[in-house]
């Protein structure tokens, strides 16, 4: 009797262990596949914005920039907007390359000439000319790209670039 019981128990145990094994063997690679994007390293190449000689001081100007995206496989670059803002700081002119991605839910913000502010059409977020969030839902200022000027040609890198 005792032997039969233990045999039964062994089969129950075997069922459980085998079942867990099957689940694990199937699940492990799936979890890996799904989570893979978290572990991907991204390079941040410099991207050319363009010649900014013509940008007037105090008027944010939108540049359409071809951002390379090779998220998983090669696809054509994606057009994004970089707002180039020139401001007088003392006697010098400061250049701010601002992302136009709203920090609330990532809609495209645009410069509103009447308001003299960046306006987000999604939920009415407002940013000052320097990109500081001054009204509506956005929790943070607009992202400022790291940038370099080669002569009058502006290059940016970071955040919106993936490779």
């Amino acid at each position: 009797m005792a032997r039969r019981m233990s045999r039964r128990r062994f089969m129950v145990l075997a069922t459980n262990v085998a079942g867990a094994g099957i689940t694990l063997l199937i699940a492990a690679p799936i979890v890996g596949e799904v989570l893979q994007p978290i572990f991907t390293r991204r390079a941040h190449p410099w991207v050319r914005v363009g010649d900014i000689t013509q940008v007037p001081v105090g008027l944010p100007t939108a540049y359409v920039v071809q951002m390379p995206t090779t998220q998983a496989w090669k696809v054509p670059p994606v057009a994004r907007i970089v707002y180039v803002v020139k401001l007088n700081v003392g006697s010098a002119v400061q250049v701010l390359p601002l992302s136009n991605v709203c920090t609330h839910m990532q809609c495209d913000v645009h410069w509103d000439q009447n308001l003299q502010q960046f306006l987000c059409p999604c939920h009415g977020g407002l940013y000052s000319i320097t990109g500081v969030n001054v009204g509506g839902p956005p929790p943070r200022p607009l992202f400022r790209y790291r940038h370099k000027l080669v002569g009058e040609t502006l290059y940016v890198r970071d955040q919106l670039t993936e490779a």
């Binding site: 799904v34 989570l35 994007p37 978290i38 991907t40 991204r42 995206t69 998220q71 998983a72 496989w73 696809v75 994606v78 955040q159 919106l160 993936e162």
Partner: peptide, 17 residues
């Protein structure tokens, strides 16, 4: 942040998304 990357397949919306 991770959840978003898992759905998007990266930090941007793209082909994997």
């Amino acid at each position: 942040h991770w959840l978003q990357e898992v759905w998007r397949g990266g930090n941007q919306v793209g082909p994997v998304t």
